[in-house]
Design a protein around this nucleic acid. Structure first.
Ligand SMILES: NC(=O)c1ccc[n+]([C@@H]2O[C@H](COP(=O)([O-])OP(=O)(O)OC[C@H]3O[C@@H](n4cnc5c(N)ncnc54)[C@H](O)[C@@H]3O)[C@@H](O)[C@H]2O)c1
Ligand SMILES: NC(=O)c1ccc[n+]([C@@H]2O[C@H](COP(=O)([O-])OP(=O)(O)OC[C@H]3O[C@@H](n4cnc5c(N)ncnc54)[C@H](O)[C@@H]3O)[C@@H](O)[C@H]2O)c1
Lengths: 219, 219
DNA sequence: TCTGGTTTGTTCGCACGTTCACAAAGTGCT
DNA sequence: AGCACTTTGTGAACGTGCGAACAAACCAGA
């Protein structure tokens, strides 16, 4: 097999588009739940909060799934996007660090319906190992390798304190995890073939603060 | 006062740079805590996980705070960035929706040290109003306007279910809040002068899933 | 079948962001 | 003072992303 076209969806999708596909998917689910069968790029764009030209260009990377003069079939497009993202089946996920944030994540029911299944909750603190959160029991962090191997876990979530995050990431990578969602406020060093996405709430607030300060100064 | 130069820091800073300034600030705080007095752009860039040329260009928008042949004074640069972002004083923040996620946010001590003070926790559910979280008592959502006015709140956090989020946003805007951090998986419609930043954990996981699927297909 | 109206898919120009590469500007040693 | 060395700040090339605009494609009705 050469470098290109490993399957029917081997086109290169721009990163900016990839980041918006889940938004479109969410909008389509909402439309579908409301009983809408068809929608135009204009409607979907409004629901997703983007420009309609941008939406059409994004969708064009997946293929030509619309009908000119009509629009898009909601359920059909929804399936195509879900397939492209890879959430037609569930991905097993482990969460490490079951403190304040870890509890909230474990209790969140929204992951399930969006393509993810929390298969394990891990914590280094033995006192946590008594707990059961959302039907899943908290297990020792050292069980990581075994769980990853047994369940085929590819995605790990880090919700430990910042000082522990790099160690946890190292263990995850060694165990075979190649995608990490990191909530700890540190920059993780990982091999090139591992994807890390970070969510830093303080940074989000600081960006808001910057613009707020600008508004206040523009008096 | 004309359109430009309202103070000494009226240069236009690119949005991409604004989003990185908090990362640099965090790295500088870490370096400072470790006792480092001076650092080169290379060191700081490594700590922040970016290219050193990008770092230098970003910093050049703030002014010329380095010394050629030497590098940057950690504490001085740290102060300059904090001032530019606007976190030399604390911003009062309200959190609406004290469920799983709201509790975690309220309990998070990291906001305080990064320029934010949670002044109120609001929830529509009367049963929540018995609670005190992290020393702050949960109050009725209808107290919003009063609290915003009294405390001068400029930033609001939405951690309610998706269906309630737009209503909460409307009330926040009407109360005078112009910066919103939204955790609910919906696109909020707000006036142009209001900033909304969204944090959607399912979207982050789906982006990881997309790349993970790609890796698996590239066998 | 033809015509008018609607909406997609795509081309093109522009703006923004990133990285390279280097002159300018500093330090420290002789 | 002069020289070798280090590191910043920035100009310029390059790549990516965005949005306007429009031809191509489709539907409906006569
Ligand atoms: N709580 C929030 O709302 C919030 C907001 C922004 C950022 N964060 C970040 O998220 C992370 C978690 O925050 P939190 O409030 O839940 O903290 P927490 O202290 O409540 O929980 C951390 C958990 O991680 C566990 N842990 C520590 N070291 C570990 C290790 N090496 N391996 C496995 N588990 C380990 C601890 O036992 C604890 O249960 C922190 O990095 C924090 O900065 C949290
Ligand atoms: N928990 C998570 O880890 C997580 C992850 C991703 C996204 N989210 C999103 O964050 C939001 C909150 O999640 P959660 O798990 O904390 O939900 P939750 O149901 O535990 O809490 C929601 C809280 O909001 C309150 N509320 C409802 N309507 C309100 C209104 N109109 N005004 C004020 N308060 C109101 C409820 O009383 C409840 O206390 C949801 O939109 C969810 O999709 C949560």
């Amino acid at each position: 097999m050469t470098a290109k076209a490993s399957s029917d969806s081997a086109r290169e999708i721009p990163e900016a588009t990839v980041a918006r596909l889940p938004v479109y998917l969410r909008a389509l689910v909402t439309l579908s739940d409301a009983g809408t069968e068809t929608c135009s790029s204009e409607e979907l764009a409004t629901a997703a909060g983007v420009n309609s030209a941008k939406l059409r260009k994004d969708l064009s990377y997946l293929g030509s799934y619309g009908t000119r003069g009509v629009g898009y079939d909601v359920d059909y497009l929804r399936y195509q996007i879900a397939r492209e993202i890879g959430v037609t089946q569930d991905w097993p996920v482990v969460i490490v660090g079951i403190g304040n944030l870890g509890h909230a994540l474990a209790n969140y029911s929204g992951f399930r319906s969006r393509g993810f299944r929390v298969v394990a909750l891990l914590d280094a603190d033995p006192e946590r190992h008594q707990e059961v959160v959302a039907g899943v029991d908290v297990r020792p962090f050292d069980d990581l390798e075994q769980i990853v191997a047994e369940q085929g876990v590819a995605i790990g979530v880090i919700a430990t304190p910042a000082v522990a995050a790099q160690d946890v990431a190292n263990r995850m990578v060694a165990a075979g995890i190649r995608s990490i969602l990191n909530f700890a406020p540190v920059v993780l060093a990982v091999p090139d073939d591992v994807d890390v996405r970070k969510v830093d709430l303080s940074i989000e607030l600081q960006i808001l603060a910057y613009h707020e300060q600008r508004k206040a100064n523009a008096s």
